[in-house]
Design a protein around this nucleic acid. Structure first.
Lengths: 99, 99
DNA sequence: TGTCTATATGCGTATATTGCGATATGCGTA
DNA sequence: TACGCATATCGCAATATACGCATATAGACA
């Protein structure tokens, strides 16, 4: 089980992937092409990242009418990220308080 | 902020580190030497991993009487890991149901 | 069926990380 | 101060992963 948990966290450990998740979470589902534009990355890179995240179930893809849309698909992800953000903020505040 | 969040997840993305966390969480605080024995790793490796986790604030170290003890120091970590474990279990169950 | 567009994959390179052994550093104690 | 133990750091080889380019594949439509 430890391997799987570590794998899930590893999937979340890349800033680019977090940007992709944030994008489809806030701006809505998108195709590979749209994400490529939004993030200014190579298409192959986007495709590979989305594949990895699909395998982990944080996004899902649905093809309809020639467009393959990637959806945000992990509601619990917010409850995972929120405390992390909170913790980082708290530590940053603590750091600046000490200086 | 994305960088920091990704860094936090990267810190959690190594099975060995999760084992270390699990060890001091369930068996209590430990020294580098004790963790080295518990995990069957090289002392230098354990030291480096614990340093990284200390920097991220998930553990803290306290030296007293010649022993440097590492404590579990991130209560919110449980609320982060729990949904991940839950999700992986659910997906595994779903997988086996489909077969 | 053939073509066009969108997505996926193979490959090579650059970079980061892990684990180990050796060594340096820090801290009690004789 | 000198010694011994515990921890931290350095250097190296092996491995993993990201990126971009080129190419293969899949699906819609004429």
């Amino acid at each position: 089980m430890t391997e799987e948990v570590a794998g899930y966290f590893k999937m979340l450990s890349e800033p680019v992937r977090l940007h992709m998740l944030g994008s489809i979470c806030s701006e809505g589902a998108a195709t590979i092409g749209e994400l490529t534009e939004r993030l200014g990355l190579c298409q192959s890179v986007v495709s590979r990242h989305m594949k990895l995240m699909t395998e982990h179930g944080v996004v899902c893809k649905k093809t309809e009418g020639g467009r393959t849309l990637y959806y945000f698909a992990d509601d619990c992800l917010c409850s995972i990220c929120a405390p992390v953000v909170e913790k980082i903020r708290a530590r940053a505040a603590e750091q600046s308080r000490l200086l």
